[in-house]
Write a protein that binds this DNA or RNA. Structure first.
Lengths: 110, 110
DNA sequence: TTTTTTGGAAACCGTATGGTTTCATTTATA
DNA sequence: TATAAATGAAACCATACGGTTTCCAAAAAA
């Protein structure tokens, strides 16, 4: 749970974290409210939320004794754009690969 | 390197694997050709490729002594669609959250 | 002012991950 | 046929990951 190379792709790789994202997208919740939706322990949920905050997908705001967790999913744009780079692979149009090669001549987006 | 719950989200969480995807999207390569693009060892690359095949993003075809690795990125559609579910968060239109809530009443896509 | 509620933090634990080196095997090539 | 190329497979390693339980502190409520 150290500060490793924490990026959005790694953050969304865990199904529990995707569920948390889904939850917080509807409304802000405090930690216990989030944990109530899962069978795992509260500290485990807290760790997931920390990972989500480390890459900016969740913002935490403390008021009194409560920690409110709010979704800020702008970071998912990067994921969408990355995946869409390869859209030619699932639109089964002809000469899709050719168009892809034309549009991507060198080595940009990893 | 066991057969765990290997899904697309986990497969693309590693930057080396995303680079391999980028590489194979342009053209099919054999294992050594792929490994030549990296500083890590050939067995390490082979393991990454196995993970990519386990979720269908890469297809392997053996001819003679060579193992050709071909990208099959239809599986990334799932990623794109998932991220796009939260598109309202990065299109700064008004009442985006309201629309989101209307369009997603219950608990579908994790 | 006790007593809850809420959550942070620490210490663990088993397993997965990402990497290595070494060796064996199969297929081409000289 | 002897040698080189391409890869699979195994053994190993350090660390990250996802989880737990326990304990402590602060804030709110009785």
């Amino acid at each position: 749970m150290n500060q490793t190379r924490r990026d959005v792709f790694q953050a969304i790789s865990d199904p529990t974290r995707r569920e948390i994202i889904h939850l917080l997208a509807r409304r802000t919740l405090n930690l216990n409210n989030v944990a109530d939706h899962f069978t795992i322990s509260r500290p485990a949920v807290a760790k997931h939320i920390r990972i989500l905050t480390e890459c900016g997908l969740v913002v935490v705001r403390t008021r009194g004794r409560e920690t409110f967790c709010e979704a800020d999913l702008k970071g998912l744009k990067q994921v969408s754009e990355w995946a869409n780079t390869y859209q030619e692979f699932w639109n089964n149009k002809l000469d899709a690969l050719e168009r892809f090669l034309d549009e991507n001549p060198s080595d940009e987006n990893l």
